[in-house]
Nucleic acid binder design. Structure first.
Length: 424
RNA sequence: GGCGGGGUCGCCUAGUGGCCUAGGGCAGCGGUCUUGAAAACCGCCGUGGGGCAACCCACCGUGGGUUCAAAUCCCACCCCCGCCGCCA
């Protein structure tokens, strides 16, 4: 939810922001009008209600004919109050609807434009020259099947397309990655959390996933619960309706959870293997911080993501995502894209967003400053490890001529082996 | 799932239709006193909205309803605690 005060002061920057996202700037004007209408309806109600209270006390004290007369007036007033209350409710609902529909302000440094207008910030690691090595590049599915690590056929048989089984070293690989990630997170001072993967509608709404992303969310009709698409949802909602002492900030968490995504509208896209799936496990970092610290915390999350990719010895680049591709909550987003040899291009592995106060307003999470005052705080999230895509990157980048896969040194203690060998 | 108890401004608690403008205690903050501390005493002490301000309005788990008037009465739901049943 955007800052209404800021919008009243300067609607132009919201119009510009909407335009930069490729969204409707006209929403801003509708909201300004609805906000004014709400204020007027509220004032009208307040006046009548006050009158009613005063009259009520007179009724309580009066008797006989005087009381009868006052009661007659009170009855009329009650109708007026009821009508004003209804009007106020309708005006508020309209304004609330619009304020929730507006996306966060975009960061001034975010590149303007759509999905392809990102800015490359850095490239790390070395892309192997497989041809020079005399290695025929196998893709992750071919490698994974040979290793007995990935089974998408049975995934489809049991659950449908875009489902998979991790088997043998594949299963161990997930556990090793998660353990490495959690160890790194803990060493960096983040609190490990295993959150619920089913949440109430309020948690989903609060994190902005029931807006433009609603199509990708699984809903359990019978219980009115949602399957989360990321641990960001329960982690953000963790402090919902709370007021956190400023001195307890920043609070940094790392949550390990399954993630469920309907992937509506992606038919025919990334259909091979486990790149785009309906369910996967992920370790997500989440930070509650003072708004003035948000950018520094964002840089911190990006650094943690890079630390992980460096540890896995993956070649990757960091991009500054363009305004049209930010989602509704983020003011700025950095993606780390790993090189995928079989595709000959970089693909998103991790992503970190600065949501400023957008989520905390919706979830009513605030900080109490030293002077006792209360204000919204900033929330930030970042992927530490998304299991299937990380497995893809490891298998493909560390494959060897005989179809075996070298295990990056940082992962060896968690996996208990240095090489993954194809089954006979 | 069944039965019972409960949800009040950080915590505890009073309040069963109208001086409730939600009272009291604890904790916290400021002050008086003190060499210092404690005690005592005095003051402040929820969130949101509106207003330059005095002040006004909303919120007593949530949503409806009854009434001139609801923390209080009625209905539904949610959550917590206990016991029973069922399942892990």
């Amino acid at each position: 939810m955007i800052d209404l005060r800021l919008l009243r002061e300067d609607p132009d920057q919201y119009r510009a922001s909407q335009a930069a996202r490729g969204e409707d700037p006209g929403l801003v004007d509708e909201l300004v009008a609805a906000d004014e209408a709400r204020r007027a309806a509220g004032a009208q109600f307040d006046t009548l209600r006050n009158e009613q209270k005063v009259l009520g006390k007179q009724v309580a004290r009066a008797a006989g004919e005087e009381k009868a007369a006052l009661l007659a007036r009170a009855r009329e007033l009650a109708d007026a109050v009821k009508a004003a209350d209804t009007a106020r409710g309708e005006a508020a609902a309209r304004a609330d609807e619009l304020v929730l529909a507006l996306s966060n302000l975009v960061h001034p440094d975010s590149p303007r434009g759509g999905e392809d207008d990102f800015r490359v910030l850095a490239e790390h690691g070395t892309i192997r020259d497989f041809a020079a090595e005399g290695v025929t590049v196998r893709d992750h599915l071919e490698l994974g099947e040979a290793l007995g690590a990935i089974d998408v056929e049975r995934g489809a048989k049991v659950s449908g397309s875009r489902f998979y089984f991790l088997t043998g070293v594949g299963a161990l690989l997930e556990l090793a990655l998660v353990n490495l990630a959690m160890a790194q997170a803990t060493a960096n001072g983040l609190m490990p959390i295993i959150p619920p993967a089913l949440v109430k509608p309020s948690a989903m709404e609060g994190t902005g996933f029931l807006g433009q992303a609603a199509e990708n969310v699984y809903r359990l009709e019978a219980d009115d619960l949602y399957l989360v698409g990321t641990a960001e949802v329960p982690l953000a909602a963790y402090h919902g309706d709370e007021i956190l002492p400023a001195e307890s900030l920043p609070r940094r968490y790392a949550g390990y959870s399954p993630c469920f995504r309907r992937e509506a509208g992606t038919y025919g896209k990334d259909t091979r293997g486990i790149f785009r799936v309906h369910w996967f496990d992920k370790v997500e970092m989440f930070i509650f911080a003072a708004p003035e610290d948000a950018e520094a915390e964002h840089a911190r999350l990006l650094a943690y993501e890079q630390q992980m990719l460096d540890a896995l010895e993956l070649p990757y680049r960091v991009i500054d995502v363009a305004t049209g591709d930010l989602g509704s909550s983020a003011t700025r987003k950095f993606d780390c894209e790993a090189w995928i040899p079989s595709q000959g291009r970089y693909r998103e592995l991790t992503s970190t967003s600065n949501c400023t106060t957008f989520q905390s307003r919706r979830l009513r999470i605030r900080q109490r400053d030293a002077d006792g005052s209360v204000r919204p705080l900033a929330t930030l999230n970042g992927t530490l490890v998304a299991v299937p895509r990380t497995i893809i990157a490891i298998l493909e980048n560390h494959q060897q001529p005989d179809g075996s896969v070298r295990v990056p040194a940082a992962l060896v203690p968690y996996l208990g082996r240095e090489v993954l060998e194809p089954l006979g």
